[in-house]
Simulated scan of single mutants.
Amino acid sequence: MLVEIEKVRQVPGEDYRRWFVDENTDLIVWYDASGDRITGFQLCYDKKSVQRCLTWQRSESDRKSIMSADGRYSRKRVIRLFDPISLKLPEDLSTLVRSVLAGEIQDG
């Protein structure tokens, strides 16, 4: 189950960051200055073997899809990994991440 790390270091010049972890997954989420709008996320999974990361960011036109380091990933597998560990995440966050992973939305 993903749990939030308290007091995450914030990087000057970047959006506000929250970090959620479990033994095999990291989810880093960036929010705008108001803290209300998610501006991007990075989901890193399979930490115990060959770690993979998926990144999604809003663009100025709000039309930027998810990116993988090697350009390929299994949507079904990542959703299958994400769903059970996301149960304690804020609902708006888990809904957005799942929708982006499923390819249902690109712009959040």
Rank of each mutant, 00 (worst) to 15 (best):
M1F: 01
M1I: 10
M1Q: 12
V3G: 02
V3Q: 11
E4C: 05
I5Y: 13
V8S: 05
Q10M: 08
P12R: 09
E14S: 08
E14L: 08
D15K: 05
Y16W: 14
R17I: 15
W19Q: 14
F20N: 02
F20Q: 07
V21Q: 09
D22E: 08
N24M: 05
I28V: 15
Y31Q: 11
D32Q: 12
A33L: 06
S34W: 03
G35Y: 06
D36A: 10
R37D: 15
T39E: 15
T39N: 13
G40V: 04
F41D: 02
C44G: 09
C44V: 14
D46I: 09
D46S: 12
D46E: 12
K47F: 06
K47W: 11
K47D: 03
S49W: 02
Q51E: 15
Q51R: 13
C53Q: 04
L54V: 08
L54G: 03
L54C: 07
Q57V: 08
R58F: 08
E60G: 12
E60A: 06
E60F: 02
D62Y: 12
R63D: 15
K64A: 11
K64W: 02
K64R: 15
S65L: 02
I66M: 06
I66P: 03
I66F: 04
I66R: 07
S68I: 03
A69S: 09
D70W: 00
D70R: 10
R72M: 11
R77E: 15
R77G: 01
R77P: 08
V78D: 05
I79H: 09
I79M: 08
R80Y: 09
F82Q: 10
D83Y: 07
P84K: 10
I85Y: 00
S86L: 00
S86I: 01
E91G: 06
E91R: 12
D92L: 00
D92R: 10
L93R: 06
L96Y: 02
V97I: 08
R98Y: 01
S99M: 07
S99L: 04
G103N: 03
E104Y: 06
E104Q: 13
I105D: 13
Q106H: 11
D107E: 14
D107F: 04
G108A: 09
G108Q: 04
G108D: 14
